[in-house]
Amino acid sequence: MPPSLEVTMELPEGTDQAARVSAGSLTPCQRQTERGFRVATDFRVAQMLKHPTPCEFHSIAEYYHALLLEGDPNVSRYVPQPFLLTIGKRQRRYTPDCYVVRDGQVDVVELRPRAEFDERRRQALEAFFRTHRMRFVVLENEVVLSRRCEALNWQKIVQTLVLHRDLVTWSIEQELVDDVLHRGTVQLGDYVRQADRESSRPQEIALLRLLHQGKVSADLAEDPLGYDTELTVCG
């Protein structure tokens, strides 16, 4: 195992200790959830697209957050439960919720109700990850949960693409981009036949891949994905 990586940050005045954060490794790798924690949390496992193996989530907010990352074309990858850290003199163990790479910037994300997080620990973690060219970010569960419709739309898209990941559609994708660009705005139902969905499956998968790649866009925030969902080519 690589040597421990440490940074020390002085605590507020009136204390005589330093909060230290250390990690055996800062190569992000999903930590397997212990059985007791699986029982104690709203645990779920899902196969996604931007992480190669099944993802483990400890709350619905974590799951929605990952689905929204799937829908962000600027996010190239993420890793749930990425590091095992120890904090402070008592060496308390801590695993952040998610490691996210967005436009080359790495964020280490913690999701909490109302973004409540111990300030001393937050400062120590911010200093630690800043030293390693990452940002430590605490997000409000409520903000993520407020985007439920969008997250569930991406759930449908991701599940469909996972089921059909071996279907080759690259030539269809280019044809569809050219057609949507020519027509301006189209509907999903223009290409996916409601009465015979199986026959138009390649077009459906191609369109969903274009959405996932950010080559075409749709308003998924307010209404469920359906045949009348409008699509446009991204600029």
Rank of each mutant, 00 (worst) to 15 (best):
V7H: 14
E10Q: 10
E10Y: 07
L11S: 13
D16G: 11
Q17P: 04
R20I: 13
S22Q: 12
A23W: 01
L26R: 05
L26K: 06
P28I: 02
P28Y: 02
P28D: 04
C29I: 09
G36Y: 14
G36D: 11
R38P: 11
A40V: 08
Q47H: 11
L49N: 03
H51S: 06
H58I: 06
S59C: 09
L68T: 01
L69R: 00
N74S: 10
V79E: 03
L85V: 09
L85E: 03
I87H: 06
K89W: 09
Q91N: 13
R92Q: 15
R93C: 05
P96K: 03
R102K: 09
R102P: 00
D103R: 10
G104M: 07
E110G: 10
E116L: 12
F117Y: 15
Q123D: 09
A124E: 02
L125D: 01
A127S: 13
T131E: 11
M134H: 08
F136Y: 05
N141R: 07
R147S: 06
C149V: 15
A151P: 02
L152S: 05
I157V: 15
L161M: 09
L161V: 05
V162H: 10
H164Y: 15
R165N: 12
R165T: 08
W170S: 14
Q174P: 03
Q174Y: 11
E175A: 13
E175H: 13
L176E: 02
T185E: 15
V186T: 08
G189D: 03
Y191R: 03
V192S: 00
D196V: 11
R197T: 05
R197F: 05
E198Q: 13
E198D: 13
S199E: 12
S200P: 11
E204M: 04
I205M: 04
L210G: 00
G214T: 05
E222F: 12
T229Y: 07
T229Q: 09
E230P: 04
L231M: 10
L231Q: 02
L231F: 07
V233G: 02
G235N: 12
